[in-house]
Amino acid sequence: MSFKVLAAFFCYYIVLSEAQLQKGFYQLSCGFAETIVKQEVRNAFFRDSGIAAGLIRLHFHDCFVRGCDGSVLIDSTGSNTAEKDSPPNNPSLRGFEVVDAIKRRLEVSCPGVVSCADILAYAARDSVEITRGLGYDVLAGRRDGRVSLASEALSNLPPPSFNVDQLTRAFANKGLSQDEMVTLSGAHTLGRSHCTSFNNRLYNFSTSSMQDPTLDLAYASQLKQQCPQGSANPNLVVPMDPPTPAVSDVSYYRGVLANRGLFTSDQTLLTSPQTRAQVLQNAQNQFLWWRKFAGAMVSMGNIGVITGGAGEIRRDCRVING
């Protein structure tokens, strides 16, 4: 088979896969599905505004491992360590109990109809909206996968230590552009991080001062107070975007421009002329970033989806059927 024929076949497969996801997929089979998801996300957000960031991150961490198939929700067993218990996910991932609450209600209203993968996609969209971001149509029809391996989370999820080239390759491997990578990085405007994810920038960097020289000095001093060196507390957390940690806005990009990106993977966006220009553009135009972020979330939600008769519709998002 020639390269052109192979490329054409691959493109056709992607288009076909995406075409099987539809707006209003559950309109006839479970008409209140999106309403139920939205209600439970809202209830959880009013209890804890940080849960919105958790649900967006759950969707991202699901899609980057085996595609958007709900595999991040599966519990470990005695014979298998699942994605959620891999170091990139445990203990930082949260929002599982919200998905559980949504699934319970959906199983009462329309048992065996709405997939856990689609719940994640809807909940992420609703989390963007409730934090004052721009809403978007979620194309649904994903089926749930039956495999979840901690080792695959470790090898597929880009760590906070990645530089811009590594990030670009990691996103390209999932079919996402460099611009979409910079756009989706803006999700760090929401939520919190464990100190262990960036402590190396404060105390163990490869300079004589042991501190990352790209980190704003005042911000570094503040972080050191919040994350003391040698602390034995693994649960210390700080907001990723201190000015507005519960609002989907461009404060994140302004922080990066001020050398206040929390992770190496944030601050590295200034090291490439292309990504630096995108950071600057986003920082100056909030509506533009809102619109780009909505589009990038739709693109991300199409990664590796399984549809039709493949996979299953899990009755309990934590457990494979049967």
Rank of each mutant, 00 (worst) to 15 (best):
Y136M: 02
S79G: 03
E83R: 11
L28K: 12
V113Q: 08
E18C: 02
G141D: 11
F60E: 00
G95E: 00
I56S: 01
C116T: 11
V108F: 13
F45G: 09
T81S: 03
I56F: 01
S76G: 07
L139E: 10
I102M: 15
T35K: 15
S92C: 08
C68E: 00
A82V: 04
G54R: 00
F64C: 04
L120S: 02
P87L: 15
C68L: 04
S79A: 02
F46N: 14
Y136S: 01
D48T: 06
F25Q: 07
F25H: 14
R125D: 04
R142W: 06
F96H: 15
N90L: 07
Y26L: 09
V99H: 01
K103Y: 08
V138D: 12
L73M: 13
P111D: 10
Q39F: 08
D62Q: 01
R57S: 05
A53M: 02
V98E: 07
F46S: 04
I51K: 02
T77D: 00
A44V: 12
F25M: 07
C68R: 00
S49L: 07
E18V: 05
L120K: 03
A124P: 07
A101N: 15
C116M: 03
L21P: 02
G67E: 07
L120V: 07
R66V: 02
V113M: 04
L28M: 10
K38Q: 10
E97L: 13
S92N: 08
D48W: 10
V108Q: 14
A19M: 08
S127R: 11
A33S: 08
L120A: 06
E83F: 06
Y122S: 11
K38W: 02
K38D: 12
A53D: 03
A53L: 03
V108P: 07
K84D: 12
E40W: 08
A52Y: 01
F64K: 03
V41N: 08
R104Y: 13
V37N: 14
G54D: 10
R125L: 03
N43Q: 15
I36D: 14
A53H: 02
E40L: 14
A33P: 00
F25S: 03
N43S: 14
V99S: 06
V128N: 07
A44W: 04
A121C: 10
A101M: 09
T131I: 01
G54P: 00
E129G: 05
A19N: 09
E40Y: 10
D75N: 11
G31K: 12
G112D: 13
A82D: 00
F96C: 12
L58S: 01
G95T: 08
V98F: 04
C63V: 06
R47K: 09
E40I: 13
A53W: 01
Q20H: 13
R47I: 05
R143H: 15
D69A: 07
V41Y: 12
G133V: 05
D137Y: 13
K84Q: 15
V72N: 04
V65G: 06
R142I: 04
V114P: 13
S127Q: 12
V41S: 10
G141W: 09
Q22P: 05
C68N: 01
V114L: 13
I56R: 00
A53P: 02
E97N: 14
E97Q: 14
G50A: 05
E129H: 08
G133W: 05
K38E: 14
E107A: 11
H59V: 00
Q27T: 11
A19Y: 09
I130P: 08
R42Y: 07
G54C: 06
P87K: 15
R94C: 13
